[in-house]
Structures are given as C-alpha cells and as structure tokens.
C-alpha cells in the first residue's frame, strides 16, 4: 500500500523537479507528454481496466477541445469556465455514445465507436463556419490567462500540465483501488460472474465510459488551451489509435503504463524522424515486437517479472 503511494507520488515529485532542470526543448516536450498522458489514462480506464476496446476516443478528446475552444471563441468565456465546458461536452458525448455503443460487444463495439468518432470528425468539418474545419482556429494568448496565470508562458504551461497530470494519475490510482474500480476489473475478467454476483454490469460499464470520456475530454480541452490551437485533425481516426498505442506500449491495466507509453512513443517518433521520413515504420515494428515479446507492455512486463504489487 505505502510503496504504491510512494511510487506514484514519487513520479509526481520527480516531474515537478524536472521543471527546474530540464533543457527548454525537453521541458516543452514533457509538458505535452503529460497532457497527452491524461488522454491515455482516460483511455486506459475503459480499455485496460474495464476491458472495452474503443476505437473512437478521439471523439471525446475533440469534444473537450472544441467544447473549450468554442466556449472561448464563440461565447467569450474565460479559461476556467471554458475548461468546464469542454469537460461537460465530453461527458455528454460520452454519456450518449456510451449508452448506444454498449448495446454491442467485442468487435462491433470497436466499429460502433469508430463510426461515432468518424461522424464527429465530419460534424466538425460540416460546421466549418464556426470550427474553421480542418484548418482549425487559434486561441490567442490573451484568452489563455487562467486565474492570472499566463498559460502561453512555458513555465506556467508546464506547471498546469503537471497539475492536471498529477490529478489524473492520482484519480486513476484511487479509482482502481476503490471498490468500484475493482468491480470494473471483475467485469473485464468475467462479465458473467460479475453479473451473477449482483452487480449492475451495464450501468457500471456506462459509468466507465463516461469517466473515461470525461478524462479524455479534459485532456483535449487542456491541450487546446495550453498549446493555443484546436483543429479537426485531433478528431481523426489516427488520434483514436494513438491512445491505444500508448496504453499498449506502457501496459494496459496499469496506472503508470499510459504515461510511460506516451513518453516512450513521443521520443521514439521524435528521434527516428531525424533518421528517416518513414518514422512511423519504427512505431509499426515496435508494435509488432511488443505483441510478440511483451504483450503486457513495459510496465506490465515489470509487474510480471517481480513487481507484482504494481497497480
């Protein structure tokens, strides 16, 4: 118990310490990775812990990003209410699509979520007059001052990303250790048995979708706010595949996995793009090798090889 808490709080503290020592480039990268890791954390709650593979999470990420961005550009909202608007947009979208998609299972669930995300992407393009379609729109620095903190400044951006990431990490740790989180794992392992034990499986799966969508949306909203841009490409299929990659790489069903996976993949692409233009080739090779030799992901392997206590 205490070593679990120590490990996670240690990571949080380490990331805070990084703020003071990292060179500018990696400082900026880590801020980005932390925000994206929240997206992966959201995805992991559904995929890793509940066992539901969604191929349409970009819908939630984009709902947050556009909920936030449009609140600012169309309604003139301040950043804090805009973030809230993004979160609510994500929760509502997740609530509706979750209720529909959960009527299906397995491959059909994957496809339905994919279809909903595709419809969402096209909807952003369709309302091009306010969303500016694929071009997207800029959120000006003056609109990104949260409680007096200028989020366009690298230091505040890093600290904001760190605060968000810490909150999401601790929340996900608390969730999986909470009885509710444990029933999610029970559903993943054996849905029929969970149902026989008297759990309302359908309701719990829906709540898992909503939590997962909410965290993803928060990540999308924060991404738009911190980096000053919202665009339709964030709603495309590729951004539904990314969290899957990150989570699998880091380790599905582990609390630290999403962060490790996001960080690893980010630098993998960043470094290989200097060697070849076909840098996604390496991502492909890594994925194949992972499935062959480390299907549990990096953190999952660590857990398998001795650290069995890792949550």
């Amino acid at each position: 118990m205490s070593r679990v808490l120590a490990l996670h709080l240690g990571l949080v503290a380490l990331l805070l310490a990084m703020h003071f020592v990292l060179p500018a480039y990696h400082h900026g990268n880590l801020a980005r990775v932390m925000v994206l890791a929240c997206y992966a954390i959201g995805f992991n709650i559904l995929f890793g812990y509940t066992g539901l593979l969604s191929l349409g999470h970009a819908l939630f990420f984009a709902a947050g990003m556009y909920g936030m961005g449009l609140a600012i550009t169309q309604l003139g909202a301040a950043p804090a209410p805009a973030l809230l608007a993004g979160l609510i947009a994500g929760l509502v979208v997740a609530g509706i699509t979750g209720a529909l998609a959960l009527r299906t299972v397995g491959v059909a669930f994957m496809i339905v979520t994919l279809m909903f995300a595709q419809a969402g992407y096209l909807t952003i393009l369709y309302f091009g007059d306010i969303t500016h379609g694929d071009e997207g729109f800029v959120i000006q620095p003056a609109q990104r001052v949260l409680w007096g903190l200028d989020l366009s400044d690298p230091s505040w951006r890093y600290l904001a990303a760190w605060a968000l990431f810490s909150a999401c990490l601790i929340a996900s740790l608390a969730l999986v250790r909470h009885p509710f989180g444990r029933t999610l794992t029970a559903i993943r392992e054996n849905e029929e048995r969970a149902r026989l034990l008297g759990y309302d499986v359908a309701l719990r799966k829906w709540v898992a979708v909503v939590i997962s969508g909410g965290i993803s949306a928060l990540s999308g909203a924060a991404y738009g706010l911190l980096f000053g841009y919202a665009g339709a490409s964030f709603a495309s299929v590729q951004y539904s595949i990314f969290p899957l990659l990150w989570v699998l790489l880091g380790g599905a069903g582990t609390v630290l996995g999403p962060f490790i996976g996001t960080l690893f993949m980010f630098y993998l692409i960043d470094l290989t793009s200097g060697i070849t233009t076909a840098y996604m080739l390496l991502a492909g090779v890594v994925l194949v090798l992972l499935t062959l030799f480390a299907p549990q992901g990096l953190v999952g392997e660590v857990r398998r090889r001795g650290w069995g206590w890792l949550p």
């Binding site: 694929d134 959120i139 366009s152 690298p154 980096f227 000053g228 841009y229």
Partner: peptide, 12 residues
C-alpha cells in the same frame, strides 16, 4: 492547418 497549428507556438 499546419500553419495555423504552428503559428501560436512560434509567437510564444
């Protein structure tokens, strides 16, 4: 879209 996504960072 690349220009519009990149310009805020260039400005900052």
């Amino acid at each position: 879209h690349v220009v519009i996504g990149s310009a805020p960072r260039a400005g900052e």
